[in-house]
Design a protein around this nucleic acid. Structure first.
Lengths: 97, 97
DNA sequence: ACGATAGGCAAGTAGCTGCTTGCCCATCAA
DNA sequence: TTGATGGGCAAGCAGCTACTTGCCTATCGT
């Protein structure tokens, strides 16, 4: 549905945030590449299916776009939905006394 | 603790997002003022304790600062923790083909 | 054709989350 | 002082979420 709530929910998970970091660093990675990245760089040992579900959440939120190429699936970061956050509230506001 | 995860978790709730909206529109509101705002403007009928817990989550994340004044407690929005989000990922990125 | 690789689907489970409920304390007005 | 107002604390419950497990489909190399 790619609503606003989906974006916030997708960001509320450290594994998903690390996946976004990895895709920003290098786009077009496959599921297995992202899995090994999480293991080697961040020490978390999750199942392939867990990561696949995380990527599904990110894709539903519009933060990740994919493309099937043969038997692999490539993933790219997409930052446009983040604008809904950055434009909603000011980042510097201090009315408090 | 005011960690990064707390900020993302605080934002992953529509009621809390509406509370931030209300505090951006007018700072220094009390708990009851925020409760009536949620009811009249957005139609959600939550308990006072529910809203209090939401404000507690926002305060732990550093997105809301408070000050006790007599028997009332005033709340202000604080956008500085949002910088951790806006600076982490680019908002316009399109490597995908 | 055969096996191996890359990924998907669905059900089940443990833990967290939002909400309610009930009771409590502090402050202000009469 | 008494009552009313504004808010806090803690336990309990229902629903969601992340994760695992098991099985399945499709593509590539040989």
């Amino acid at each position: 549905m790619r609503s606003v709530a989906d974006v916030f929910r997708a960001l509320d998970d450290e594994t998903r945030r690390l996946l976004l970091d990895g895709l920003v660093a290098r786009g077009g990675q496959t599921l297995f590449e992202l899995c090994t990245m999480l293991v080697t760089r961040h020490g978390l040992s999750s199942t392939r299916q867990a990561i696949s579900q995380h990527l599904g959440v990110l894709e539903e939120a519009g933060l990740v776009v994919t493309e099937r190429r043969g038997r692999t699936k490539l993933h790219w970061f997409r930052g446009e939905p983040l604008a809904a956050i950055t434009e909603r509230w000011p980042t510097d506001r201090e009315d408090a006394p």
